[in-house]
């Protein structure tokens, strides 16, 4: 041990954890690096932007709900492949996914984000924040883009991103967990593996602290998403009930 690891977690165990979680991430990351490179980072043309902007609010909300749900399905698969996740009781698996799946979608967003142009891959091309104007959530959209930009600035490797995503999913402080201790153990091990990886990759000491700040930023983004959804649902209850993906409704209590 180099003093960073607990006496019960060996270096070999941490290396193994890094390998397994990285593999799970790559198998479920929705877009591979090679695919992303082939996307040619094409931006929407002005008339395409205007066409999104002129969509009725409910149509744009539905489109975004569908895209978020697609991304979340991959996160669920990721969670299932994290060592120990499927050994948790089913209540806790659900609690962790309800609270953490959208957070991981936001973390993964940096893979499909172009910092230079402030655009994100959406519906086949790269979209700036103005594309989402019809949602009526400009402040939230700006915050999501700012978050993606700041994640990009950390230049995390796929391995580091994988470990951070697992760390987020295994947050032991989520409300309604039944076997908190069990989750805590898994999260601690994941954190050790992340620290171990950062050291191995010779990242500067500040990266882990920067990632710690991201945890609260993610929570804020997700609670604001819930607020916006509540406001939307208050005006369009039938659209949410009949047109939104069932998984989205289960996760966000719509």
């Amino acid at each position: 041990s180099d003093g960073e690891t607990s006496p019960t977690t060996s270096m070999a165990e941490l290396d193994h954890l890094v390998q397994v979680i990285s593999k799970s991430h790559l198998e479920t990351c929705q877009y591979l690096r090679e695919e992303l490179q082939q996307m040619s980072w094409q931006n929407f043309l002005q008339d395409e932007v205007e066409s999104y902007q002129s969509k009725p609010r409910e149509v744009m909300w539905q489109l975004c709900a569908v895209k978020i749900t697609e991304a979340i399905q991959y996160v669920v698969e990721f969670a299932k492949r994290i060592d120990g996740f499927m050994d948790l009781c089913q209540n806790d698996q659900i609690v962790l996914l309800k609270a953490g799946s959208l957070e991981v979608v936001f973390v993964r967003m940096c893979r499909v984000f172009d910092s230079q142009n402030n655009t994100v891959y959406f519906d086949g091309k790269f979209a700036g924040p103005e594309v989402f104007k019809a949602l009526g959530c400009d402040d939230l959209i700006t915050s999501v883009f700012d978050f993606a930009k700041s994640m990009c600035s950390l230049h995390l490797s796929e391995d580091e991103l994988a470990l951070f995503s697992a760390f987020i999913l295994l947050s032991a402080d989520r409300t309604w967990l039944q076997e908190k201790l069990q989750v805590e153990k898994l999260q601690q091990k994941t954190q050790l593996a992340l620290q171990h990886l950062l050291q191995k990759n010779q990242r500067e000491d500040g990266v882990l602290n920067k990632l710690r700040f991201k945890v609260s930023a993610l929570r804020s983004l997700c609670s604001r998403h819930t607020e916006k959804l509540s406001a939307f649902r208050a005006v369009y209850p039938d659209i949410v009930r009949t047109h939104f993906p069932p998984l989205y409704k289960e996760l966000f209590g719509a």
């Binding site: 198998e27 479920t28 929705q30 697609e70 399905q73 991959y74 669920v76 698969e77 299932k80 499927m86 089913q90 698996q93 659900i94 996914l97 309800k98 069932p246 998984l247 289960e250 996760l251």
Partner: peptide
């Protein structure tokens, strides 16, 4: 359980990303 039917299904299925 009924409240999280889809999540339960996804957790129980042995799906692969290709199936998604």
């Amino acid at each position: 359980k009924e409240k999280h039917k889809i999540l339960h299904q996804l957790l129980q299925n042995s799906t692969s990303p290709v199936d998604l």
